[in-house]
Amino acid sequence: MPPTAARRTRPAVEDAALPLSLPIPPALPGRVLPEFSVPCVGAFDDPDFRFSIDWDGTRTLLFASPGVIRLQSETLADVSDRYPEIVAAAQPLANRAAVLDGVVAVLDPSGCPDLVALGERMALGATTQQRLPAVYLAIDLLHLDGRGTIGLALDRRLELLRGLALPDPRIQVPDWVVGEGEALADAAAPRHLPALLARRGSAHYHPGVASPDRLRIPLRHRAHCVVIGADQVLGSTRRRRLRLAEYQDSRLTQAGTVEIAETSTLWRWAAPGARMRSPLIATVDYRSRGPDGGLRGAEVVTLRDDIDPAWCIRRDPVPPPPSRPVPARGFRPTVLTALPLEVSPPVG
């Protein structure tokens, strides 16, 4: 027998003798920091960019592999227990060993994400899933069939994401628009959507970095602030004033105050001894900013623990391309001050 024929037959015999014939599940990354966005002054048109809505929700990465489906928040925490319906809906993805980047949202009947309802869902927990069902809005694909895709261009990743068969309405892939950011902003603003996301079609995914290829175009005045204290409102026994702060030049700076009622669901987050988790973040809508950058006319949209306080940054937005001098290689937050978190005890 010629030697080449012997080489062909021997491995086949060894394979047949092996007791295990199951395929080894492809490895998934353990935890992945999501890519963050750089704030941009206003909407623009650019054929290189893919424009979508920056959906109101909680940024979440979905890891699906055989036997294990888990959800990871922006703070790298495992939040699978919070949204069991999404974990169940992602079962068909398990065979593809995929990691999706997206947003968990609670939709109103018109299909618009409702951040107030999501805040209530986060405060009350998974027991409210019947009344406040969560959906997963996938906007990017970071891993598929055991291979990382973050090195691929965004257009290719979106193509692969669209190619995934997702029959369950609890996992949805929202559409995007090529090039026409201004028209999308005009259409989205009257619907009170918070912001647009402009992503460069040829860009790779940059985990943990505010990427210049991912611009956030705000459609309303909204900010995420760190809650650094809670005081009783004078003259009212049932209202609390939350003191807010943002990072400015890497230092935690006072941003203003907002009031919430102790009767509100949100107070469950901040109530001493209840479910106080440090650090607490307040998402607020505000009317304007003062000369010192402080918030004017701020109102709480929701309180939450799913945002990394280091990303509660007050930062000047960059102008839109082509003249935009954005950081060439992205930036990471630098934190120089500790987080003074204090909640005064209830009176009486």
Partner: peptide
């Protein structure tokens, strides 16, 4: 159990937005 209301589809909203963008594009 009370039947859960059907989940809204984000695609419906995006379809409306895209139609608006296309109409604006045609006008331009």
């Amino acid at each position: 159990r009370a039947p859960s209301p059907p989940l809204a589809q984000i695609t419906d909203l995006m379809a409306v937005l895209k139609a608006s963008v296309e109409a604006s594009s045609r006008q331009r």
